[in-house]
């Protein structure tokens, strides 16, 4: 039995992989311009150029980010109406949010992007950013996969290898998760003026988003109704679920230029190619966000829960040894 112990421990104590912050659908929109010959800098692009509003559902995932758990890969396939017929633009934006601030541009080293235009399997254009900028309006981090983000971008893509002439410009771009940070705030009662560094969210027992503002996780089935605890996880009807249907994807946007067609429901439809129509407008007016690296969680129940298999294995081995002695 003693020889067995290391083997059992080896399996039982294997560390769990780190969890990512985002795994959610969302919406992306921008104004699109194809420059087939010359590529003027972003600042020199004429406002009266033939900009085409484009929008689609997007997928936000930290697991696929090259920046790791603190990053997010935004992936979308966007249907585009070009003069020669419909095509699809596939946009990948990979962001490092580890030290992201709100309202300021992310450093270039925190941005990786790629844009491909296709008709069926025929590649019409490929480009990486020659120029561009990404900045966040709101960000809610998560220990698990319940993060939410609202951000903006503009990019000028060209092919560094010169295979595809010209460039593509994506201007006035907005990306927002569903649920949006604003919706998460509403559902979890995070105050809009919550000081940075104190708010994280995670999924509750039934997929509810619960607020964790003191480094301690909620225990499922609890009845915490205090203002600072685990609201939304008390089992009451009032708790709000992730992906709750209803309002548009761009809460807090009172300008009326948001993303129509957001049906909620948190469908993962980045490849759907449709969804958000209109586009072109931003999702402004978001509240402040909490920005700081995650802190380790604790709590005796979580500790017992974490090591439950080990406790069972030890118990079984002890019991077997006692039986053998008899």
């Amino acid at each position: 039995m003693k020889r067995l112990l290391p083997l059992v421990l080896c399996f039982a104590l294997a560390p769990a992989a780190a969890r990512a912050g985002f795994n959610t659908p969302g919406i992306i929109d921008f104004d699109w311009l194809a420059e087939e010959v010359a590529c003027p800098p972003l600042a020199d692009l004429p406002a009266d150029a033939p900009w085409v509003p484009a929008a689609a559902q997007a997928v936000f995932g930290s697991a696929a980010s090259t920046f790791g758990a603190e990053g997010v890969l935004i992936w979308a396939a966007i249907p585009l109406e070009a003069p020669d017929g419909q095509r699809v633009g596939i946009l990948q934006i990979d962001l490092d949010l580890a030290y992201a601030g709100l309202g300021t541009s992310l450093p270039v080293s925190s941005i990786r992007a790629e844009y491909v235009e296709k008709r069926g399997d025929e590649v019409l254009f490929f480009g990486t950013p020659a120029e561009g900028e990404v900045w966040l309006s709101d960000l809610i981090r998560s220990f698990e996969e319940a993060g939410a983000v609202l951000g903006h971008f503009e990019f000028l893509f060209d092919d560094p290898e010169g295979r595809y002439p010209g460039c593509r410009v994506l201007r006035a771009g907005t990306f927002v998760t569903n649920p949006s940070p604003e919706k998460v705030r509403q559902h979890t009662y995070i105050p809009p003026d919550q000081p940075g560094g104190d708010v994280y969210v995670e999924s509750g027992c039934n997929g509810d988003v619960v607020i964790v503002d003191d480094g301690e996780s909620c225990d499922c089935g609890g009845d915490d109704t205090s203002g600072s605890g685990c609201e939304g996880d008390s089992g009451s009807e009032s708790s709000s679920c992730e992906g709750d249907s209803g309002s548009s994807g761009c809460e807090g946007d009172s300008g009326g230029s948001g993303c129509e067609g957001d049906t909620g429901g948190a469908d993962c439809g980045g490849g759907g190619g449709g969804g958000c129509s209109g586009g072109g407008g931003g999702c402004e007016g978001a509240a402040r966000a909490a920005v700081a690296p995650p802190r380790p969680r604790g709590g005796p129940i979580r500790l017992v829960s974490r090591f439950f298999p080990e406790i069972v294995v030890f118990g079984f081995i002890t019991w077997m040894r006692r039986r053998n002695r008899r």
């Binding site: 795994n23 659908p25 997928v59 696929a64 890969l73 992936w75 996969e145 948190a266 993962c268 490849g271």
Partner: peptide
């Protein structure tokens, strides 16, 4: 686990999206 979706299933627009 509570999952929102699988990323690849999201890329493909799958009806059953790995949730």
């Amino acid at each position: 686990d509570t999952r929102n979706c699988d990323l690849i299933a999201g890329f493909l627009g799958e009806r059953q999206d790995g949730r």
